[in-house]
Structures are given as C-alpha cells and as structure tokens.
Design a binder for these strands. Structure first.
Length: 425
RNA sequence: GGAGGAGUGGCAGAGCGGUUGAAUGCACUGGUCUUGAAAACCAGCAUACUUUACGGUAUCGGGGGUUCGAAUCCCUCCUCCUCCGCCA
C-alpha cells in the first residue's frame, strides 16, 4: 500500500510511475484519494470535538451525583444524549470515508523504481545479464522432461490426476530423491549465507494474506479453506514476511534474514500450451524462499546481495541462465524492482523462469505495520525483499533436459552428496 | 469434540461502573553521586490518528451492546490454561 504522504508530496513522480504501469485514470484516482483523506481528517476533528464534550459532561454528571445534585445531573444527561446522536452520525461518516479511502489505496500498485524499463508485456523486459554458462549440445533423440519422466519414472502427472487433479505431479524414486536433495541443498546454501531457517504453517489467516499483498489483489490465486477461513500459501513469502507484522524493531535488529522451504499452492487459472506442459506450471510445487527485512537505506544493496545468492545457486547447479529486469508492465503489483532468473532448457529450446527477486520497499511494511525506531526515536517503515532460492519444478525440468545423456541423466556435482547417486537411470 | 478457568503497557501484576491511558514492581533510557562500576536517589519510558501549537480522540484479545459514563456489566468470536474424549 502506498503512503498517503507519498501521494500528497510526490504526486508528479507518482503519476509518472502509474503511467509507466499503464494505470488508467491515475490523476482522478489520486485526486479522489486526497479528497477522501481531507474529508477523513476534517470529520475526525469534528468527531473528536464532540466526543471530548461528551466526555467532560459525563464527568460532571458523575460529580453532580456525588454531591447529591441529582436534578442537575439528569438535566445534563439529556444534553449528552443529544450530543451523542450527533456524534453517531459523524462516526458513521468517518468509518465510511476511511473504508473508501482504504479501498482506493489498496487499488494502487507500488511505485516502480527509476531503473525499471518502460514496457507493457514480458517482451519488454530488459536482459540485465546475457546468457551465462553453456547450453549443452544434445543429440537427435533429445526429450523434453515430460517424456524423460516416463522413461526414468521420475514423476507421474497422470497419477497426480488420479489422486488429486491436473497440475499435481507425483514424484517418485530417484525423482523424489532429487527433489529432497535440491531442498536440502538450497536450505544449506541459505543458512551458509546467514538466513535463519523457518518451517512455517502452510495455511495463513486473512490478516497475513493481506499483509504481503495477496489480498485483495490476488484472491483468486489462492486455495481457500472455507470451513476455517484459511488460505493455502502461494509462497513461503506470506507466512515468513508476516513473522514481523505489527512489530517495532530496533536499527540494530537489521538485517533480518529468513528462509524457508514450503510447498506452494497456486490456482493459476488461464494459460495454455507449452507454458503449462509437464512441470512448467503446476498447482503445487516446492520452493525455498529467502526474505529480508532491512533498513530503507540498504534495501537496494540487499537486492543485489540476494540476486548474487540466487545466481550462485544456478552456477553451482551448472545451469545456463540469464537475468531479466522486469519492465513496468510485467512488474508485480507490490514490487518496486524485480529481477527474474531464467534457465535455458536445451530440449524445450526456451527460457524457464526459476526465480524472482524483488524489493517491495515500504509497500508491504505499510500494510504489515512493520516498523523500526529510527535514530531520532521515530517509528519508521522498514523495507522488505524476497526471492525464490529456488523454485523446484523448472529447475528439475532443466536439469533433466540439459543433463540427459545416452547413459542416463547426470546429477551436478554439488547435489551428489544429497542425492546419494550421480546418475538417474 | 465436551466441561471449567483466564486474556490489562517490554515482562510481572493491581484495578471489577465515575477526570484510569491505567497503581506497584522489574526491565529499559537519561541524570546526580563515584577514579570506574555497583548501589542509592531523581526524571523519563505504549501505539495510532488529529492539531501550526497548547492540546484532543481512540485503543485494557477482536467485534457488537447496555449506560450520561465501561478495562470494569451483557452478547458473540478468537486465543491460552486445566480436566475428559479422540488421535500421528
């Protein structure tokens, strides 16, 4: 959620940013927000005035009763009752204005960082770092991962359909081991980089979902348990970032570095073709997430640090990758700047997104009420960042496809101590 | 799932209808004292909104109600504790 102070004081910059994001009616929306905020303030001032009068009169009534002047007290009661009627009307108006203001604010996306390129679709994303690593030369009998899975019995989509439905792959045998190996590897790497490991709940309440911006923006993306009003997490970002919801930190608490492995659940309606084939897009997948809560002065350095961490993982896995800087049109609602990491699948001959690293600045912390006490003792919003490190299915797809040989699928060196085997046969 | 008890400031813990945003203790911050430290003493110490400012308003688990007036009474939801049941 954007800050009202930003909307009031940096209107031009904001209009520019909203235009970049192709946001319609930006000017009218900002005008409306400011007008609502003005009304909220003036309503509150009037309301407070009335409440204050009521309060002091009520105290007088108490004193009158004590000194035995019941008649005067009763006369005063009528006065207060009248005041109360007046204030009730104002209070209703106050609540309505506040709610409307909130709705408008929730509809505004984060202001994109100045380095975010213009553009409306993923075609306009900037290649921040060109292909790094080598694309393997594969033979004529190269298979995509969904065919390899059948050949080696790594995972089974049909079985998933039988057990649950489309988009719920079942990993088995060496495939299941590979999955577990990757999780351990990613977590060990995160721990070594100073992240504290969490095992969070896989369902969250409404407050948590709102805190990180899943609600109300992406309600349809989440599985929802109606009986208990809980949401299945679409990413570990949600529970982990909410650890510090409603907290006031000290500057010496920074940086807070957290990581966690969780399954992720996404309803992901509306895609087709190669995008959703095999493991390319599924409803349940595993991911290790890294999250940081930092001082606003350091958040862009932290973004770089987190990108370096993700890059290191891809290098250790010996996967060819590139880094994109997302354009304004492709940038997530809550993000100020996002780098996407893509690995190249030699068999599918396409790039697969395996990580997204973002700085949200104060967009999430404003909703989360996640603050710190600054040098002057004032409470100030912290910055949050997160990144996938990494999401498993497409890593597995790329590993299977790029490492296929006539003898089987070779496992990268770094994973061998985790898998316990060096080739999938 | 059933029965009972409880939720107050960073923590502990009073208050149980009337200037109570809330006693007291601990913790914390600043000061005096001291060569330094400790002790002692003095002062400060919730959050948010609002006001140019003085100040004002709201918040005692959440929401609603009764009353001129609620931390205190009523309803409801949530959470925790104890006992019973069930269970990996």
């Amino acid at each position: 959620m954007l800050l009202l102070s930003t909307i009031r004081e940096e209107r031009d910059r904001l209009l520019e940013g909203l235009a970049k994001r192709n946001f319609n009616n930006a000017e009218a929306t900002l005008d409306k927000v400011v007008a609502l905020d003005d009304e909220r303030k003036s309503t509150q001032t009037q309301l407070d005035q009335l409440l204050s009068e009521q309060k002091s009169l009520s105290n007088e009534i108490g004193n009158l009763f004590k000194s035995g002047k019941a008649e005067e007290a009763n006369a005063m009661k009528v006065k207060v009752t009248n005041l109360k009627e007046e204030s009730n009307v104002l209070e209703e108006r106050f609540k309505a204005v506040k709610a409307e203001l909130e709705t408008e604010l929730l509809g505004l996306p984060n202001l994109a960082h100045t380095s975010v390129p213009h553009g409306s679709t993923e075609e306009d994303n900037e290649v921040f770092k060109e292909l790094t690593g080598t694309i393997p030369e594969l033979g004529a009998d190269t298979m995509p991962h969904w065919e390899l899975s059948g050949k080696y019995g790594i995972f089974d989509l049909k079985l998933g359909v039988k057990l649950t439905g489309a988009g719920f792959p079942v990993f088995k045998g060496q495939g299941a081991r590979l999955q577990r190996a990757l999780i351990s590897f990613f977590l060990d790497q995160a721990s070594a980089a100073g992240y504290t490991e969490y095992v969070p709940p896989l369902m969250v309440n409404e407050d948590s979902a709102r805190g990180t911006g899943q609600l109300p923006d992406k309600e349809g993306q989440m599985y929802y348990v109606t009986e208990d009003d809980l949401y299945l997490i679409p990413t570990a970002e949600v529970p982990i970032t909410n650890v510090y919801r409603n907290e006031i930190l000290k500057t010496e608490d920074f940086p807070i570095k957290m990581c966690g492995y969780t399954p992720c659940f996404r309803r992901e309606a509306g895609s087709y073709g190669a995008d959703v084939k095999g493991l390319n897009r599924v409803h349940q997948f595993d991911k290790v997430e890294i999250v940081q809560v930092v001082h606003p002065d350091n958040s862009y350095d932290t973004l770089t640090e987190m990108c370096n961490h993700v890059e290191g993982l891809l290098q250790k896995l010996e996967l060819p990758y590139r880094i994109l800087r997302l354009c304004a049109g492709d940038l997530g609602f809550a993000s100020a700047l996002t780098f996407d990491f893509e690995v190249y699948s030699a068999a599918q001959k396409r790039w697969l997104e395996v990580s997204s690293v973002s700085n949200f600045e104060t967009f999430q912390t404003n909703r989360l009420k996640l603050r710190y006490r600054n040098e002057e003792g004032k409470t100030t919003l912290a910055h949050t960042l997160n990144g996938s490190a990494l999401a498993l299915p497409r890593i597995i797809a790329a590993l299977l496809e790029n490492n296929q040989t006539s003898d089987g699928i070779t496992i990268p060196d770094v994973l061998r101590k985790y898998t316990g085997f060096d080739i999938i046969k």
